[in-house]
Design a protein around this nucleic acid. Sequence first.
DNA 1: TAGTAACCGAGACGGTACGTCGTGTCTTGCC
DNA 2: GGCAAGACACGACGTACCGTCTCGGTTACTA
Lengths: 195, 195, 195, 195
Amino acid sequence: MTDAPHRRGADRTEAIMRTTLELGREIGYANLSIEAVAARAGAGKHTIYRRWSSKGALLLDSLLSLNGPGLDYPDTGDVVADLRAQIYAAVDLLAGASFGPLFQALIGEAQHDSRIAAALNERFIAPQADKTVARLKAARDQGQLSPGFDLDLAMAILSGPLYFQLLITQEPLTHEYVDRILDALFTGMGPRPRP
Amino acid sequence: MTDAPHRRGADRTEAIMRTTLELGREIGYANLSIEAVAARAGAGKHTIYRRWSSKGALLLDSLLSLNGPGLDYPDTGDVVADLRAQIYAAVDLLAGASFGPLFQALIGEAQHDSRIAAALNERFIAPQADKTVARLKAARDQGQLSPGFDLDLAMAILSGPLYFQLLITQEPLTHEYVDRILDALFTGMGPRPRP
Amino acid sequence: MTDAPHRRGADRTEAIMRTTLELGREIGYANLSIEAVAARAGAGKHTIYRRWSSKGALLLDSLLSLNGPGLDYPDTGDVVADLRAQIYAAVDLLAGASFGPLFQALIGEAQHDSRIAAALNERFIAPQADKTVARLKAARDQGQLSPGFDLDLAMAILSGPLYFQLLITQEPLTHEYVDRILDALFTGMGPRPRP
Amino acid sequence: MTDAPHRRGADRTEAIMRTTLELGREIGYANLSIEAVAARAGAGKHTIYRRWSSKGALLLDSLLSLNGPGLDYPDTGDVVADLRAQIYAAVDLLAGASFGPLFQALIGEAQHDSRIAAALNERFIAPQADKTVARLKAARDQGQLSPGFDLDLAMAILSGPLYFQLLITQEPLTHEYVDRILDALFTGMGPRPRP
DNA sequence: TAGTAACCGAGACGGTACGTCGTGTCTTGCC
DNA sequence: GGCAAGACACGACGTACCGTCTCGGTTACTA
């Protein structure tokens, strides 16, 4: 009817991904199995394996199919405000009750499966980082940051502590904590030590 | 004969942990199974399950059994040098060819298993962090850092980017990168932005 | 090609039963395990459990798959000769070197597992008994036996001592012994006691 | 204190056998394990293995420890009445609700374990049979039975159908059925067939 | 419009590992 | 020195998924 070229195929793909997220939220990633997704989705296992090579790949696609909108930076002229807005959004996604645990589990999976790691990087992490770096670069070009400002390192200082908290100490990620990091990055930690 | 109190038990425990590391290095964490460890160690599966509740718990203990010495800070009076030395050591352990992949996989496992996460934190992460914070505090008390210096945040800025690189972007962790972070923390990123 | 309806399934079923008998003869029923049958047959354990609920059920089917022909009575007009022929055949099967031990073990198993007992009865014992009773009935109808002749009891007297010898005293079952029982049944034990 | 030479030992032996019967009646022979008996009896496994070589041997001893009195034939002069009394008693024991299932299971076990079979024969079956044969012999010697009366066969005809019913068809054993067999043996089945 | 190829559900299949249970042997320490 | 307690190596249990495969029964393109 519509112009969708592979109607049946796309339907199944979406149904499977939807089921994956649904089931994943219910029973957690560790208990999730392709077998169970197939059963719940009313799909044959083959139909899943035809599309994805592993549980991780399936979840990755499923999660990425969510943020159709994507997180784009507006450039309001205020770097800090822009970064803050964007990081708030990212934190809400990663640490939110809905899909936070699945995101977290997916990053966990990436530690055993380098293909997942690569795909996760390429399709989720890098785009985010690139936008952050681009926004910082714009600020630097406009003279808001010193010419020697290390863009990549700044990005890492903004992201690292958050992922550290998410993955390692497993404490809740709050907006307040984001503020502290932003503050430290742009205001500094205080006078340098005198060795 | 000797004063060894639980000779038989301790013997098996050590043998199993040794085998776990050996086999883990050979075939990787994902392919590691309790069954295989038992077989290789000449132990019954029950003997393993009696001690550890999961593959992750076994690997955690096995890895922690390695650095009996632990990484202690000398206080040379130079905070930056002391931190650098300690972080170098940590990075060499986490990213080293020997056990780096296993450490990484263990952190991955912690994302699906909250008991592993808690144990990992309590027995590996927190002690390290505490020492770092203590060393920073000593420096602050001695006036080498400003009174408002946020110790915990500094620790997070030192650790976060490293774990980010280890777990997320999966790029190699170098001493040079550690230097950049230390530099950024204590020297600053440059003048603050003018919003 | 042919009319075989469930080719793949039937193939595995037969292969598994064949292996069961083969392995059972080699190592005995007590040492037989579903695990070992699966391994020898090149089958997954699940494939066995899908068909049979226990070792006993598997052996029962395997043994029954043997005598496709079955033991049928010809009616030559001579009851005793007909019975003799049929009982000889039964005794040869039950006490034969090939499968006797397995039959015996199966009857043993039936003592702990009432489902086995029921199936064994229904599919092996009862058909045999029915045929014997039918042959006796024909003889009685033709006036070769007295009208009050107790068919069921006669059947029990023909079978009981044989199973007693097989299962309880574990002495070898000979044709000569069958003859003695037949003789006793139809000729009598001698004059009745005078109380 | 008393003259019992191995007081502690005998105590344990009895306690273990008592527990075996108790537990056997509760959960059935198939589910019975030496481990469970030891636990319930508050005994070490070693203490059991020191005395019995297998579950079957333990149960055999336990069951035999029951009928301290034993079943002795009075010789009232009436063979049939004497036999009837004794067989009633045997049937009540073997098919009784209390220990019948355990007896039955033990006979089942004997089919896989020839040591059990031998012991069962020697200590339970043969003594019974011997007494029966002896009683029959006395009757024959007193002229109550014909000189050619086959004592062993008569014993087998008396026992066989009962065990057949107990072990094979698993129908209840009644006194009425015993009567039918006695009747057939001593009164005959009717006129011989004319071949 | 008929044929035909791809896709699909269902699920059988050979595997691997799971976590549990019971075996029979052993070691330890109490009494 | 017998005993309770239970650790130990071992082997099998029955289950769960894996990833591959075969089977028919629809689609939906192609000729």
